[in-house]
């Protein structure tokens, strides 16, 4: 693969919007301690789309929660936009595997939920929320309850909710892994469109190799117990990306190379990656 560059250490640290320096996490459970993350160095440039790829239980979600300020690292430090990240900050938007919408609120109210929690004026953000909903094709559903929407539509509403307070960094924890394959493809396109339009930095956790390659500028592979980042692969496809690139030999070669990377670290350990 001549077009991909592999590095284990991010280049110039000052350049990075998200910077993890020797981040480690140990869970104390009773008398024993479990080391979830050994030591992770990673950097994400401003405006970059980076995926954290790895099998279930490799600590990639934990790392994401540390970057979000929702978990504390037991080792090392995280900075976002040059400031240390030690508690939740409102310049970050989050998406989870489930849309976690409030069933008793309309879609619009759900999208405005972060604004309400931040005690910012709701009317000022109403038009932005409606614009976001229009971008993902949910404008006509603004007054509907989540129950009336499909899984993919709910997750699109969750994208809007994550972006409503104009965050600069979007963190996503396997946001589409509960969706069917067809919906998932649609969601990937929708997400990329939002990311390009709003010019945000994105850190995306997934265990799907194809999804990581399709979405990202760079894919970081996490693996091992305790885990570290074992590969850093640049994805060279032009933007905006078309879904057809998934059928090209280059795409499949990249997927194969990533699969090999994961396999190298986990040979014989019986870990499934798809």
């Amino acid at each position: 693969m001549g077009t991909t560059v592999e590095r284990l250490v991010a280049d110039d640290p000052d350049d990075m919007y998200v910077q993890c320096a020797r981040v480690g996490k140990v869970y104390a459970t009773g008398r024993s301690a479990v080391q979830a993350i050994k030591s992770v160095d990673l950097g994400v440039r401003e405006g970059e789309f980076v995926s954290l790829l790895g099998p279930s239980g490799c600590g990639k979600s934990t790392l994401l929660m540390i970057v979000a300020g929702l978990e504390t690292a037991t080792l090392g430090a995280v900075t976002v936009a040059g400031r240390p990240m030690d508690e939740p900050r409102t310049d970050i938007g989050i998406m989870f595997q489930d849309p976690t919408l409030l069933p008793w609120r309309s879609i619009l109210e759900n999208v405005l939920f972060p604004i309400r929690m931040m005690r910012r004026p709701l009317p000022a953000y109403r038009s932005r929320a409606l614009e976001l909903l229009e971008e993902v094709g949910l404008k006509d559903f603004a007054e509907h309850r989540p129950r009336h929407l499909s899984g993919g539509m709910r997750q699109r509403a969750a994208i809007c909710r994550a972006l409503v307070h104009e965050p600069r960094l979007l963190l996503m924890d396997e946001p589409f892994s509960a969706l069917d394959a067809i919906t998932r493809d649609e969601m990937n396109i929708a997400l990329l469109r939002m990311w390009e339009h709003h010019k945000i930095t994105a850190l995306f956790v997934t265990h799907s190799i194809r999804e990581a390659v399709f979405l990202s500028d760079r894919v970081l592979v996490m693996n091992g117990r305790p885990s570290t980042i074992i590969a850093d692969m640049r994805i060279p496809f032009a933007r905006p990306r078309q879904f057809a690139i998934g059928d090209t030999p280059e795409f499949n070669a990249l997927c194969g190379a990533l699969r090999d990377k994961i396999g190298e670290a986990y040979r014989g350990a019986g870990t499934e990656v798809h």
Binding site: A68, P88, D98, M118
Partner: peptide
């Protein structure tokens, strides 16, 4: 839901909120 509580914390919601 645990993720709902995480979302609340990430947007700075107080415990009473």
């Amino acid at each position: 839901d645990r993720d709902m509580l995480r979302l609340c914390r990430s947007v700075g919601a107080t415990r009473l909120q």
